[in-house]
Each structure stands twice: as structure tokens, then as C-alpha cells.
Simulated scan of single mutants.
Amino acid sequence: MSEYEVYAVKYGTMEGKRSNFFMAKDIHDGPMGLDFFVWVVRGEAGTFVIDTGFEEQTAARRGREIWRPVGEGLKTLDVQADEVSDVVLTHMHYDHAGNHDLFPRARYHLQEKEMAYATGPCMCHATLRHTFEVTDVQNMVQRVFEGRVCFHDGSREIAPGLSLHWVGGHSRGLQVVRVKTRRGWVVLASDATHFYDNFLQGVPFPIVVDVADMLAGFDTLRELASSDAHVIPGHDPLVMARYPQVAEGVVRLDADPIA
């Protein structure tokens, strides 16, 4: 079976408080950072980019900081965005589905449930739609009509040793990515667990469509990964400290943790 290199590429950051990121409040509340990543999976089957981040306009509108644009971060791995053939969107929230023009040749892998959610009656509610950018949704519709979207329903292997798995919870069509690596099965959890502590302590992130699905998703992560240490959270700054750095803001996730 194919084995892949896997990288986390940091592109943005924000500061918050611990109470912002956990449904159960912590009496020891204090400052806590959140990082924004895209991921690269590379092997014999090709190069796959997982999620596409957001751009300057979205960052300014939402009070986020772009640490380095996604395209520039990918270049540190010699990945040219305009040559990428496959992009996986774990879901369509603003920080995972922007940068519309970066990948003109790519087909996009998306869960059917996510497209239905982002274009359906749930978006009539401001509480649910605030995590989406309308231009991201419009651009995905355009890609559908261009024949550039591959829809999935549940679990699907998209290349040997590389598969997608629906978990829901945070967004109705959230999917995680399971990758065969030299150290075993690594799971890119995206927002199935924003931080290590979400799934290790069983405490959901407060932006959630279905709490039961999110909690069940924590179990799914453990079933798919070789161990808890093979689960990669979607936004935890600790990822940058726990894995070996190959370039500024880029760490290698198929390598053994260093911390």
C-alpha cells in the first residue's frame, strides 16, 4: 500500500480565550491562540491539498491575521497551486474554502451533505451561516457546473492509502482525511477536533451543528487513527511544536512527534 508524506502549512493565526474554544467553561480561563492550516499529502498517487484557507479580504472582514498567504506557504514544499490536480475540502467554512483562484486545474472533493447544507434552508439562519462566505459557496456552485467537483457520501478511498470519512458535527458535511504513512495511519481531523483537548477531554468546540455527531466523531477519529498521537487537530498551535519543522511555518506530520 502507498505511503505518503504529510505536511501542515500554517497560513494564519488569531488570539482568543480558552472559554472561546470549549463548550464546557474552564474556571482556569486564560489566553489561548488558534492557528489556521492547510495540509499537503504527497506520494506516488500525486499531490493532494487539503483545504484552501482564506484570503486578505476575508481576514480583514473577520478580524483574522494572515501569517503567510496559502500559495506562498505551498511553495515552501515546491507545490505550485496552479498545478495541483486534487483539492479536498473538509468543509466549506470560510477558513477552509477560500482562495478561489489559486487552484484553476483542480477538482474538488466534497461531501454531498456539505453542499446541501451550505445551499439549503439552514442558511436562512444567521447563527448557522455566519461561518460561511457567500462567495465561497457561489464559487463552489460554479465549479459544479464546470465539472470540477467530485461529491462523496460517507467514506471513500480517493487513492490507495488515502480516504475521506464523513463525521459531521461541526458542520453538516464535515469530513476527515485518513492517510497511510511510514508511522501508521494519520488522520487529518480538521474541525472534527480544533484542539487536542477537544477530543482528548471529550469537550466539543462551541460552533457545532450537531453535538451528538461531534462527540461520535471523536470516537471515529480514534477508530481511524493508529493512536491518539496520530490524530492531527485542525487549529491547535501545538501541532507546530510537536512535529519537526521543514520550513518556517511548515511541519512534517508523517514523522514521529518530537514533543
Rank of each mutant, 00 (worst) to 15 (best):
Y7K: 05
A8Q: 06
K10R: 15
G16H: 06
K17E: 13
R18N: 09
A24M: 13
A24K: 14
K25P: 08
I27T: 11
I27D: 14
D29A: 06
G33Y: 05
G33C: 03
F36V: 00
W39H: 15
W39P: 07
V41K: 01
A45M: 08
I50S: 06
F54V: 01
E56P: 07
E56G: 06
A59Y: 10
R61W: 09
R61E: 15
R64K: 15
R64I: 10
R64F: 15
I66N: 01
I66R: 04
W67I: 15
D78W: 05
V79P: 09
A81H: 11
D82S: 03
E83A: 12
D86R: 15
D86T: 11
V87R: 00
L89A: 09
L89C: 07
T90M: 10
T90E: 06
M92P: 05
H93R: 09
H93F: 11
Y94R: 00
A97Y: 00
G98P: 01
D101S: 14
D101C: 09
F103M: 00
P104T: 04
Y108M: 00
H109L: 12
L110D: 05
Q111Y: 10
E112V: 13
M115Y: 15
Y117A: 03
T119I: 02
G120W: 08
G120E: 05
P121D: 15
M123D: 04
C124R: 14
A126D: 14
T131R: 14
E133F: 10
V134K: 15
T135K: 13
V137R: 03
V141H: 15
V141G: 14
Q142K: 14
V144M: 11
V144C: 12
F145C: 10
E146R: 09
R148A: 04
R148N: 03
C150S: 13
F151Q: 03
H152I: 08
H152W: 03
S155H: 08
E157Y: 05
I158F: 05
A159C: 03
P160R: 00
P160Q: 04
P160C: 05
H165V: 06
V167N: 11
G168W: 12
R172C: 12
R178P: 06
R178W: 03
V179K: 01
K180Q: 15
K180T: 15
T181E: 02
W185C: 13
V186I: 08
V186A: 02
V187A: 04
V187F: 06
L188H: 02
L188W: 00
D191F: 01
D191W: 08
T193G: 10
T193E: 02
N198L: 00
L200S: 09
L200R: 13
Q201M: 12
V203H: 10
V203F: 04
P204M: 01
F205G: 06
P206N: 00
P206W: 01
V208M: 02
V211N: 09
A212D: 07
M214D: 07
G217C: 07
L221V: 07
L221G: 07
L221Q: 01
E223F: 11
L224P: 02
S226Q: 06
D228T: 13
D228L: 07
H230K: 10
V231C: 04
V231A: 08
I232S: 05
P233T: 02
G234L: 03
L238Q: 12
M240C: 11
L253M: 13
A255F: 11
P257M: 01
